[in-house]
Simulated scan of single mutants.
Amino acid sequence: MSDSGEIDESRLSRRTVLRAVSGTVALSVAGSGRVSASGSGSGSGSRGDLRSLFDGRCPDATLQPSMGYCADSSTAGCTDDHPETVELQRAVRTSLETQYPDVGALVDAGFRPYFDVFGGGEGWSHWLSPAHIGDEGVVDPERPEAVLVDNDSWRSIGVMFIATRDGERVEPPTIYDADGAVGGDDHGDASGHGKGHEEPPANDPSRCAPWHYHAGLPGRFAWWFYQQVYAREAGGDVTADTDVAFPCRTPCMMHVWIVDHPEGVYAHDGPPPEYRQRPPAEDPGFETDATPGEDELGWDVLPDEVVPDRKPKSFAAFPFDR
C-alpha cells in the first residue's frame, strides 16, 4: 500500500520473471508452499506457481511499486479549496481528533497495523479496520477503512478509504461533481478498475473521484496479507485449509490527509517528513517500554494482542531490502 504515486506502466521482463521463479522472490503461505495461480496454494512450491503471479492473468503486474487510476476516476476537478473537499477534510479531521487520534485509540478501536515489508518503510504506517472494511459504507469519515499514522509521533495524519462493501470490492463513488456532493453510498458491484492509465480514464474538470489501485507487488502483497491474516481472524476462519487468492490489483483506494501536503488533500504519496511533524502522543495507550517521539512505531513496541502470529516478513522472502 505504500506504492509510489508515479504511474509505472512497465511490464516484467523475461529475465525478471525467471529471477523471481528461481528464488529471488518467494511468497510462502501458511499451510502451503507458495501462492498458486488461483491463489489456493498448491503446496508444491513449483516454479509454475510463482510464475503465475506475473503471467497473463495479471497483465499490468510489476515487482516495482506501481499504481493506476480506477475506471471512473477523475482528478481534474479535485481542488483543496472546493467546498466539498474542505468539508470532507474537516469531517475526517474531526473523526481522527475525537475517535482515532493516535495508536492507542486505534488499538482500542480494533484497527490492525501494517508496516511495509518491501520498501523499507516511509515513516508512516497503515492501520486497517476489518469491521469498517466489512461494512456497507465506503466514504464514511467516522468509519474509515484505514487510518494513516506517523511512526515518529504515533499520531494519525490521514485516512485511506477503500472501496469495499461487506469486504468485497465495489465501484468507488464520485466525491463531488458540477452539481455538488455525490456522497459515499452510491456504489455498485463492479471492481471499478481501469487499465493503468497515466491519466484518469474519465478525467472531467467538473468532477472529483481520485481513486487509485495498486498493481505493484508491494501493494498487492499488503492487501493479500490483510485478507489472509486480519480478515480471517475477524471472520473466525484462521484454520481454513485454502489460501486467499493473490490479487492482480488492490481494490480502489483514496487518501484524505489532515496535515498539509504539497500535492494536496487527496495525494497518493505520503507527506514528506517535514509536513508530518506533530507533537508526539502523550501516552502510548498500552503497556510498552517505547516512548512516542523517541522510539519509532513498529511491531516490536506493540502489545501482543495486536501483533499477528505471522508478520508480513514471514510470508515474503527477499534477498535484499528495497
Rank of each mutant, 00 (worst) to 15 (best):
T62H: 02
Y100T: 00
P101C: 12
A61I: 07
D80Y: 09
P101E: 11
D80Q: 11
H82M: 09
C58M: 10
D102A: 11
E87D: 15
Y69S: 01
D72R: 04
H82Q: 10
G68S: 04
P59K: 12
L96W: 00
S73I: 04
L63H: 05
D81V: 10
R93H: 14
C70N: 00
C70T: 08
L63M: 14
T62R: 02
R90N: 14
L63W: 03
G77D: 01
C70W: 00
D60S: 15
L96Y: 04
A71Q: 04
L88Y: 03
P83I: 13
Y69A: 02
T75L: 09
L88T: 06
R93T: 15
L96G: 01
C78N: 01
E97L: 14
A76L: 14
T85N: 09
C58E: 02
T98C: 09
D72T: 12
S66K: 01
Q89T: 12
M67Y: 10
S66A: 15
S66C: 15
S74P: 00
E84D: 14
A91Q: 15
Q64F: 09
T85K: 03
Q99A: 13
S66N: 09
Q89H: 13
D60R: 08
E87K: 03
L88V: 06
P59G: 14
D80F: 04
D72G: 13
D72M: 13
L63G: 03
S74E: 05
D81S: 15
T85Q: 06
Q89D: 10
A91S: 15
G77P: 01
V103Q: 05
P59D: 05
E87N: 05
E87C: 05
A76F: 08
E84N: 14
P101K: 07
Y100H: 11
V86G: 12
T98R: 08
A76T: 10
D80P: 00
V92G: 05
D81C: 09
S74L: 14
T79H: 08
L88W: 03
E84W: 12
P65L: 02
P59R: 09
P65D: 08
E97N: 10
D80K: 03
V103C: 07
S95V: 00
H82A: 09
P101Y: 06
E87F: 04
T94S: 15
T75H: 06
H82P: 00
C58R: 11
T75M: 13
D102L: 06
A91C: 13
V92D: 05
R90D: 13
D60T: 13
A61R: 04
Q64A: 15
D102R: 07
R90S: 12
P59E: 07
D80R: 07
T62V: 13
V92Q: 02
V86S: 11
T79F: 08
V92M: 06
R90P: 00
Y100C: 04
Y100E: 06
A71Y: 00
T98K: 05
E97K: 01
Q64G: 13
D81E: 15
H82V: 02
D80T: 08
S95W: 04
Q64T: 11
V86R: 15
D81G: 12
A61D: 07
V92L: 05
S74F: 07
Y100G: 02
R93V: 07
C70V: 11
H82S: 11
A61V: 14
P59M: 12
P101T: 13
P65G: 15
M67G: 08
E87A: 14
T94F: 04
C78R: 01
S95N: 03
C70Y: 04
T79R: 06
Y69E: 02
T75R: 03
T79L: 07
T75D: 03
P59A: 12
T62D: 10
